[in-house]
Design a protein around this nucleic acid. Structure first.
Lengths: 267, 267
DNA sequence: CGAAAAGTTGATCTACATCAACGTGCGTGG
DNA sequence: CCACGCACGTTGATGTAGATCAACTTTTCG
């Protein structure tokens, strides 16, 4: 852990993410800025959270990649999801005491830390933010459920194609990919652990996609050459990503509710 | 769908679930009772929600079993989780428009329905309930993540043992199991779809557990004879279930926050 | 520049899938 | 009341996707 410092309030990834669900008000912006006041850097391959240990502060990813993973006693490991800027680590930790998973950085990373009590405060004072966070959580679950479908019912080739398309879509939304090209700061071993494959088979599967001309890989750069075909191989249906077609949807919901409220109560 | 009727407010599974996180206040109880006012019955093997279709009302499971599942275009299917009394279906549906999964009843079922707008109202008026629901959602995600670990890294035998132990633990908490004995209203095909196995291999795997004397099966009744060993085979570590050791934990969190509030704000 | 980490490839093995057949209980209609 | 059909369970034979083992190359990095 390095460099703890205060920063001026400004648009952060979390801010932008929540801002895509609802028009943030000044007091909400202020609260978020305050939550993200303390920023800390961590080098690659550092544990931000360890399975079996107590939760500490809540963390907001500001920059870099991490992975959420679980391990069996004998060392077998499953990567549950990748943590991208704007994602939150351990938001409900005042309720769980011991972590059932680890979070490890993949790149150098900066995260904001705040005390778990602030979450309670947030629920009390900023219901709109609370709803937005709950929504973000639901979206994450949808991604994990889709990965479950992959591991349960897709072949190695399909899984791999699917994951690459998913990452491309997610990264494009946050401007971390363009022209089908993005950085995947991950070894084949980690990829294998995300897809439930052996390293060797992971390697061969990537090779098949490369040989088929669907993707190009050099170093950690991946380029998707034929998105249409890759998505088709992976049976990719982006329903589950719930990318927002009607932005500020939450805003509308809250507006509507405000109108209804007194008329409907205990009807 | 049959029998829509109003019922007198009383302890429902949802009520009991949230009540284990915090001491419900009268107005909170009132609101919950109102949410669950309209109760509807459905026969077994009915879709409560269909992948690809619009969400309708929010539903609270009151009685019976259902499953949450996703399908690939070619028919391959993955059961994501089992839905038990007290679980909520589609709680954030005012935010997603199209369902990325289906929910199908396994037994005859009664569910309560309410309009998605009520969720917004709940966030505005009852922050403690909102937090409790968010927590419940996080617990569900933990279960899905653990299943992901199973499909990715556990063998068929381990997965199966793990799932049986998990169900036993979850059902025991809500008094739906005793002495290691419970009803699993599920065909081997559905079990296979939950564990990412073929029907045939599911059958053989169950047989191995039976032959080993770890479980007994007749009809839909499962009896766990040797929980210790079954848990060991499944590498079961109940961390992820987050069964409550410190009940009313949320209560404490809210109490603490109330004290802090003014002193800390914008410190 | 040297060592460790990561990637690659071939040979072999195996857990699980697929195919095929048959048994069993049960609801329904003749 | 029987029989027919159908859903579900069971078991054996065989096929295969992906694991494991082993060796080697390339890249990374101190």
């Amino acid at each position: 852990m390095t460099r703890a410092r205060a920063i001026a309030p400004s648009a952060t990834p979390l801010w932008r993410k929540l801002g895509s669900y609802l028009e943030l008000r000044d007091e909400e912006k202020g609260f978020l800025a305050e939550l993200e006041r303390i920023v800390v850097g961590h080098p690659p391959r550092t544990d931000l959270l360890q399975q079996g240990e107590r939760y500490g502060d809540v963390r907001v990813m500001r920059d870099g990649w991490a992975m959420r993973h679980k391990a069996l006693p004998d060392g077998r490991r499953q990567v549950v999801n990748f943590v991208l800027p704007g994602d939150i680590i351990g938001i409900y930790c005042n309720l769980f005491d011991v972590a059932d998973h680890s979070v490890t950085t993949l790149t150098a990373v900066t995260v904001a830390n705040f005390a778990p009590e602030r979450v309670v405060e947030l629920f009390q004072r900023f219901p709109r933010l609370a709803a937005a966070l709950a929504w973000a959580g639901a979206k994450e679950e949808a991604i994990v459920a889709e990965r479950l479908l992959s591991l349960g019912r897709r072949t190695a080739l399909e899984r791999t194609a699917h994951l690459i398309v998913e990452l491309l879509r997610r990264l494009t939304v946050v401007n971390l990919a363009e022209n089908g090209r993005f950085t995947l700061p991950v070894t084949q071993e980690i990829l294998a652990d995300a897809l439930g494959l052996s390293i060797v088979h992971m390697n061969r599967t990537l090779r098949r996609l490369r040989d088929g001309g669907l993707i190009e890989v050099n170093g950690q750069k991946i380029t998707v050459n034929d998105l249409r075909q890759l998505a088709s191989v992976g049976q990719f249906d982006e329903l589950y990503l719930h990318l927002i077609r009607a932005p500020k949807r939450l805003d509308q919901a809250f507006e509507a509710a405000r109108g209804d409220r007194d008329g409907v109560r205990l009807a």
